[in-house]
Amino acid sequence: MIEIVDIWKSFSRKKILCGVNLSISDGEIMVIIGGSGAGKTVLLKHIIGLLKPDRGQIFINSISLSTAATSHLEKIRKQFGMVFQSSALLNSLTVWENVALPLIEHTNMSTEEIGKLVSEKLNLVQLHGIEREMPANLSGGMKKRIAVARAIIRNPAIILYDEPTSGLDPVTGHSIENLIVDLKRNLNVTSVIVTHDIEGACRMADRIAMLLHGEIVEVGTPSETRKSSNPAIRQFLQYEK
């Protein structure tokens, strides 16, 4: 369970988050939508403790991230996987090493066992035979899929996705959406997805939260979102068509 309680954040006096409150249940797919610069990524980075709020608290299974010591924070983060908007693959490592890194660092598994898992996860994101490639030689879409494979390699309980389908062709984008839904269905993974693709959000989400001017202005199921009278959501839906 993720509880976001009255989070405030400013950068150089510019207010980004102004009292965000949101509760995400176990196994839920929560999609946070909002315009560019609305603070979606900032909110996501707060959830995993990469940023500390100026005010407010975030609780992961009733444990506050704000008061957790660094060593405890590292333990909490082991429950997480995160897909960055820029993919954030380590450019000095091969694809195989990138995907295997969490296992190499945190488990005593043999190279063969790790290799098997890496192949399995790369197959899930429809990538084969690129294990020895360096990230610099790959397209943006391929990097995004490798980032997804890396995020799910340890079967985390919570996965955060920052624009998981942006830069992907529609077929691959749909396959990633299906993968997110399958992870919830099969492994009860909690997913928090940040996007401005409202159609994709409606396909994946259990609930959709709209972030506007640093606040969550509406939370509802996809059908409730489609029927929303909120002008910002109506505008999103209008331009999506």
């Binding site: 990469l50 983060r77 960055f84 954030a88 693959l89 380590l90 890396r150």
Partner: peptide, 11 residues
């Protein structure tokens, strides 16, 4: 390029 952030998210 957020690679250091990515390391932190992987503990």
């Amino acid at each position: 390029s957020e690679e250091i952030d990515a390391l932190e998210t992987m503990s």
